[in-house]
Amino acid sequence: MRPALPVGIVGYGGYVPRYRLPASEISRLWPSGGEDGPVSSKAVPGLDEDTVTMSIEAARNALDRAGIDPAQIGAVWVGSESHPYAVKPTSTIVAEAIGAVPHVLAADWQFACKAGTEALQAALGLVGSGMVRYGLAIGMDAAQGKPSDALEYTAAAGGAAILVGPAEEAVARCEGSVSYVTDTPDFWRRPGRTYPEHAGRFTGQPAYFAHSLAAARELLAELGWRPDELAHAVFHQPNVRFPTQAGQQLGLSRQQMALGLLSPEIGNAYAGSSLLGLVAALDGAAPEQRILQVSFGSGAGSDAFGWITTPLLPERQQLASTVRDYIARQRQIDYATYLRYRGQIVME
């Protein structure tokens, strides 16, 4: 898929909260036979943070890099599976905070961990059809894992905002995108339930790998790109093993995956995961480099994007905090503090 008009990323910004829960704290509470956790630590939101507040900060970073008047933004879309309200949009609060109201499309998107890239594809289409000049797509989550469940090690917080606009203003041009979707029941949450359910090992081959690799291969074939021509590749990161193996199966080197692989340090940012990896890659990329980005959302589907960075990138990289700045800004917490920050301690 490719929009009618050339479009790209004119501004981008990530956000990772300050607190880290080491995997050793979870295994201390819930010993499971001495296995190492799937990540070394995960990012945890503070007491006053949620998908709204984190989206606002990422959006402000994207605007700082783009340097445009926020009133020119024609769409603010937030993809998440942890919107603070069941009914009342996250996107209107974000749009108000960044000064994009009132002449703006605003909506919340839902597709498990690919809600953010779904919003990004729609923004590429809306800008690429000429309906709006700029569209802001955000993927952000403050994920909850059931205590003692394997997901508790990885369910983390963070995400990114991507401001889509005309290609001539872009730091990275969109060369094309592919979606690959089937009805695959690997992970779900019913209304009113606090924690998601998952199908254990079924989340691997039929879900994550089948969709991620199919989308990646189809996009590379459409664009005529060989894997060795990619400077950077970013996958959805539910743990460290899945994206690493997906990269290996595509023939990618450790170096091609290095900039965008964040899960070892922050866990799985759900709808924010591959977008945050893309932002980390943009933070460190040079002009005229090819970037492959592949999301995955349970239920299930993958969106793949081919980006080529432009000469405008270097001057905008330092106009806002980088993902590495946020990762370096960390304070480790223990399991009791984690429960307090996640609202699990009943006060009344």
Binding site: T53, Q318, T322, R324, D325, A328, R329
Partner: peptide, 15 residues
């Protein structure tokens, strides 16, 4: 939701 203030974050060296 509303304004709070935090210390200005440190920046790590450019890549």
């Amino acid at each position: 939701y509303g304004y709070k203030f935090r210390p200005v974050p440190e920046r790590v060296a450019a890549h």
